[in-house]
Amino acid sequence: MTLTPDASGVFPIAPTPFNPDGTLDWASTEKLFAFYDEIGSDGTTVLGIMGEAPKLEPDESLRIVKTAVAGMPGKPVIVGVSAPGFAAMRSLARQSMELGAAAVMIAPPPSLRTDDQITGYYAQAVEAIGTDIPFVIQDYPLTLSVIMTPAVIRKIVTDNPSCVMLKHEDWPGLEKISTLRRFQADGSLRPISILTGNGGLFLDFEMERGADGAMTGYAFPELLIDVVTLQKAGKRDEAHDIFDTHLPLMRYEQQQGVGLAVRKYTLMKRGILKSDAQRKPGSAISAAAKAEVDYLLSRVAKIDPRADI
């Protein structure tokens, strides 16, 4: 299976489950992907920024890819392969595809500043991993500090036929989605899948602007599936209603520095992860923060019983 430009739906970004001693929790890893599959996710993405990928050993990374592919049979697995050098990127990309991954995701290094540097980097990355591997552009300026204009994204897509998807995480970014879809409408950009991130905070309107779905890591991916499904069915008010129910918890989870800790805590309370541990160096949330999350969950549960945990 390989990823194609018509990919759509919800691809949860998988956190990496750890035991309190920092070792990989493989039982929870298997349970996580089984959960994604059971709720109707259209695929998944592993070894992303929120997956603590830089903290993993190469063999651990490959085992996570293998576990994801096995846990979501028939569904595409995208692997984050961003690395300081192209040798490591190529190795992980090609080994992941051999294990059954559908595509890889490449983020630009923070040192890139000019448009030519950005487009040149992606050309070199594609040359390194091979033009036979489908890839996803990760556009995440808030964390990576690399600004990609719609014109730059169009050039990367046009110059590299193996580019099949944009992971859109600009903020504010609604106008960027609209501009890219206008490029597509006027024929200056070939069709490409656009999945959005940022914890789902803007998914309600991103779908209306032309996004194909979400690729992010909110602790209730079922909510993301609901919003995408309802918007595709033209049920705008219903999509916004369920989205608004979860928005306070989504906002809390999106805090810089502690967002992953909040997400893992919630997934642990849901019984999907055995521990909310991160591999060092990692953050943790205080007892006060946990109480706040519990309060938010109780409020969401008044309308959405899935949060009654």
Rank of each mutant, 00 (worst) to 15 (best):
L260T: 07
V300L: 04
V300H: 10
I285K: 08
S283Y: 14
L267I: 00
G234P: 07
R270F: 06
S283P: 07
K274S: 15
R270G: 06
D276W: 04
M268D: 05
K235M: 11
D276Y: 01
Q256R: 12
A287K: 13
D226I: 02
V258Q: 04
D237G: 04
A261L: 05
P281R: 09
D276T: 06
T229M: 05
A261P: 00
T229A: 09
I272Q: 07
L249H: 08
Q255D: 13
L273Q: 07
A288P: 08
D244S: 13
L296P: 07
P281T: 11
Q254L: 13
G271A: 11
T266A: 09
V258G: 08
E238I: 01
R270Q: 10
S286P: 01
G271E: 06
Y295S: 15
Y295Q: 15
E292P: 01
K269P: 02
H240A: 07
R299N: 12
E292G: 12
Y265M: 00
R306S: 06
V300M: 03
A288R: 13
K269L: 13
L267T: 00
Q254F: 15
K264Y: 03
R279N: 10
L296H: 09
Q256V: 13
K280E: 15
H246S: 06
S298L: 11
I303Y: 10
E292D: 15
A239Q: 05
H246L: 02
Q254D: 11
Y265R: 04
I285P: 10
G282P: 01
H246V: 06
E238H: 00
H246R: 02
S283C: 12
L297H: 05
Q254S: 15
A287C: 01
A284K: 13
